[in-house]
Each structure stands twice: as C-alpha cells, then as structure tokens.
Amino acid sequence: MQKSLHIDPGKCTGCVQCELACSFENEGVFNTAKSRIKVFTFHQEGRFVPYTCTQCDEAWCMQACPVDAIVINAKTGSKDIIEDRCVGCKVCTIACPFGTVNYNQDTGKVIKCDLCGGDPACASACPTAAITYIDADTTGLDRMRAWAAKTDNTAQASA
C-alpha cells in the first residue's frame, strides 16, 4: 500500500517539531534552515501551515533534471535525489510549481522530501497529528467522515 503525507493545517500550532525532526533525520543536526518541510505562519490570519513535497506522480522536478538525479523510490513512491548524480544546476527548483525542492549551499546539491524511506520523521514528531502518514488512496477519509456525520439521514442527496 502506498502512503502519503497528509497535512491538516487546522491542527498545526507552529511548533516546528516537524522541521527539527526532518533536519535531524537528514542532516544529523537540529536545524530548521535545512528542513525539507517548512511551517509557514500567517500572523494576521492566525494560521500555521506546514508545507512540503506532494510527491507528484509525473514530477516536474524529475522530468526537468538533465542528469537523471531524481528517481522514483519503488517502495514508497517518493521522488528521491541521488546525491552522487546531482550537479546542483537547480533546474528542478525552478521546475517544481510548489517550491518544495531547494538548493543546499553547504553541499552544492538540492534537497527535497523523500518520505524518510517510508517512515517520515515529521509525522512521528508532530504532537497534534497535523501531519500524518496514511493510505494514499484515502487521504480524504476523515473529511468525508466528518461531512457524513453531519448528513441528515432523512434527506436525500443527489450527485
């Protein structure tokens, strides 16, 4: 079963435990500047939104890479950077419509979310379940359930 990172911003408190976990998993340090997932604060609106790679099926980054340094992980479906191949041309950072591939000036390579090989550290660290790792085919299940719960059984719906 393929799984997806599922993000529910309504539950996020902006604590950046996800960023700490991500940087520690990937870089061995607690460093939000090197996290593959970022939490954005919209201060005036009082909103926090974690954002990271959605692992597009036809990934723009992968298509754009001139040296085939981005490959599909057969186990998780994630699009992974092969560091040895990456030449740091940054074309993928331009190609990604969502900005989730970024250049790391310390290494001269790009970095992006690779789902930690199937056990994403951000999801494990999130204290409020704003980030979960769930069945890719049913990421809408909770929301459907919530709406279903509000449905009046005496009424008839047509779709």
Binding site: T13, G14, C15, V16, Q17, L20, E45, G46, R47, F48, P127, T128
Partner: peptide
Amino acid sequence: LTTNAACFGCTIA
C-alpha cells in the same frame, strides 16, 4: 481566540 500557538519546539502550545 482564533487559535492556540506554540513557541519553538513546544508540544504544549
């Protein structure tokens, strides 16, 4: 109250 909020690394919020 719009929402609760956390400081850096805080799981209480």
